[in-house]
Amino acid sequence: MNNRTQTQHSYKTRAKRLPKLISGNRQWVGLLYISPWLIGFLILELYPLMASLYYSFTDFTLLRKPEFVGLKNYIQMFTKDHNFWNSVVVTFKWVIIAVPLKLTTALLVALLLNKKLKHINFYRTVYYLPSIFAGSVAVAILWRFLFMREGLVNQILSAVHIPPVDWLGNPDIALYTLSMINVWQFGTSMVLFLAGLKQIPGDLYEAGRIDGANKIQQFWSITLPMLTPIVLFNLVMQTINAFQDFTAPFVITKGGPAKSTYLFSIMIYDNGFKYFSMGYAAALSWLMFAAIITLTAVLFWSSRYWAHYEDGGK
């Protein structure tokens, strides 16, 4: 104790000699510590974000100086852009197909990997691997080759005498094919589900068994309700991701055939980097941002009716 007082005393004397910035205001020290992140955030995230908001009200081609046009870009997308509504429909279809498909797969695999098996950690790692590779262009190209008319998938089908399918070339099928490909990246959701499953107290199942519930009843009445907070989290995150999906669809179909996979993100890219209508592309991005925020809010609001928390969600 005595020692500590002495130390504190010497600390105070020395501190007086240091600039006020360091010794006087502890907030500055904190800020200095986080400054690498803070500078990065301000320059590389906040500034571009705000700049894009400004550009969304301008006519900006990258080749000329931006010219302020007010709400013109926003009005144009609803009234003049012939691709806009098609793209909105395609994107919603994509989200509605891809997200539940991915979450269901993730949950099923998590249930399997929750079993006490030999080498279970090895299997868990293997199932997570696709999420590490999946965002890459190389893997997208690989998928493209697999699903081409002469690709491996059709070759396997022909071995069992099923005629070849134009997985990516038929406008009626292409979006579903892409959604199937997208399911492959279920790893992140799966890990979260797995963590959620581990949290469910064993005595609930025990009580269920005593009451005579079979495995399926246990799943619907215990596992799923107990997992709903994780379902909510995964649903929100995957919905946000699905709206922004770009790499695989862009590499595999580029929005074709006949605009049947023309996701909103690809439309933004085309306007920005093909036609260099940067102002318009920025406006489209902000619309997507608003749509994502709204949808996320709706999901959170709806969760009070279906997500269960042990503490009542307080």
């Binding site: 130390t7 504190q8 600390y11 020395r14 501190a15 240091l18 360091i22 010794s23 020290v29 200095l32 510590y33 400054s35 690498p36």
Partner: peptide, 20 residues
């Protein structure tokens, strides 16, 4: 004790910033 050593703290920050 280390946690409250301002000179050390100052030096670490300077080092971090300069390396950056």
């Amino acid at each position: 004790m280390k946690r409250k050593h301002p000179v050390l703290k100052f030096m670490v920050i300077i080092l971090l910033i300069s390396s950056l």
